[in-house]
Simulated assay, not measured.
Amino acid sequence: MLTKAEKTKQFILDTAVPLYNEKGISGVSIDDVLAATKLTKGCLYGHFENKDDLSDQVIELALKTLTNKVRLAVSKGKSAKGKIFAFMDFYKDPLHPYIPGGCPIFNTAVEADDNYPEMKQKVAKVFRAGQEELRGLLLEGIANGEFSSALDPTVFAFKMVAAIEGGIVMCRTMGTGKPMLSLIKNLKEELERYTD
């Protein structure tokens, strides 16, 4: 059971996640967060040391939330291939993502690249873990005979993540999700070529 203070802090974080995802770390001000939460500055600073502390915890929550949502979707697959397809399908509607503003992994990666080295490391950790989990599923598929040993799990996992993340940005920029559907279909067809 959360205390009142813990509930308030969680409310601030939950409210701030879409703000940060849409405006970016440098684009969000404390006033934006105060306006969205309808809380006082004193209340906010009772839970966070400063904007950097708030930003750090908001990004941490956004990455964790998305990662957990993806893992839940993947877990519904009945086989290694089903789980990989579930991963791809999670991203099939880039114009209406789980967190408003696009993929927080990509958004944070772009902004953090030259400006926030600690955030960059957090995103790199998420990318590495995600690719490793996908690689593990592909290896599992090879081991149980779903895929042929000609499939390179490391390369395909990287390609899949890179293509989908790039596809999200392009689709959102162009204002259409159609190319993402074609991309996912193409990735599935490529993986199907490795089934015996």
Rank of each mutant, 00 (worst) to 15 (best):
T65S: 10
A124E: 14
L191Y: 02
L72D: 15
T15H: 02
T195P: 04
P117M: 07
N144Q: 13
G167N: 12
C103L: 09
T37W: 02
L187V: 01
D196C: 01
N50G: 01
K64W: 01
K83P: 09
S55D: 09
L2F: 13
D113G: 07
E146R: 04
R193C: 05
E49K: 15
E189V: 06
G175H: 03
K185T: 15
D113I: 06
E6K: 13
D113A: 13
I168L: 12
S75Q: 04
K23L: 05
P153E: 06
A86M: 10
G177P: 04
D152V: 14
T15A: 00
N144T: 12
T37L: 01
Q121M: 11
I142C: 00
G175K: 04
R135F: 02
C171E: 01
K159F: 11
V126E: 14
K38T: 14
A162G: 08
D52M: 04
A86Y: 06
Q131E: 09
E22V: 14
H47Y: 08
G77L: 09
K159E: 07
G27K: 01
L181W: 05
D113P: 00
G77Y: 05
Y45C: 03
D52G: 05
L183H: 07
N186P: 07
S79R: 08
E49G: 06
G102P: 14
K23M: 03
E140C: 02
V74D: 01
T65W: 07
L187T: 03
L39Q: 04
K64G: 01
P117F: 05
T67N: 05
L2T: 11
P117T: 06
I168Y: 08
N115W: 11
A80M: 07
G46R: 06
E111K: 05
P18Q: 03
A157V: 02
F106M: 10
A129Y: 10
V17I: 09
F90R: 15
A5R: 12
L95V: 11
G167K: 14
F147P: 06
F85G: 01
T195I: 02
N68E: 15
S55Q: 04
G175E: 02
V17E: 01
A16R: 03
Q57P: 09
G175L: 01
L66P: 05
N107S: 10
K92L: 14
V126T: 14
M170P: 00
M119T: 03
V161A: 07
E165W: 14
K125Q: 12
K188D: 12
H47D: 00
K69T: 10
N21F: 04
F48G: 02
V74I: 09
T8P: 07
T8N: 14
N115M: 09
T15N: 00
L19Y: 08
P104Q: 10
K78H: 10
M180A: 04
S75G: 08
D52W: 07
M180G: 06
A150G: 10
E165P: 12
I12E: 02
L138Y: 06
K4V: 04
G136L: 11
D114M: 11
I99L: 05
T8M: 13
G46L: 03
E190H: 09
L191F: 01
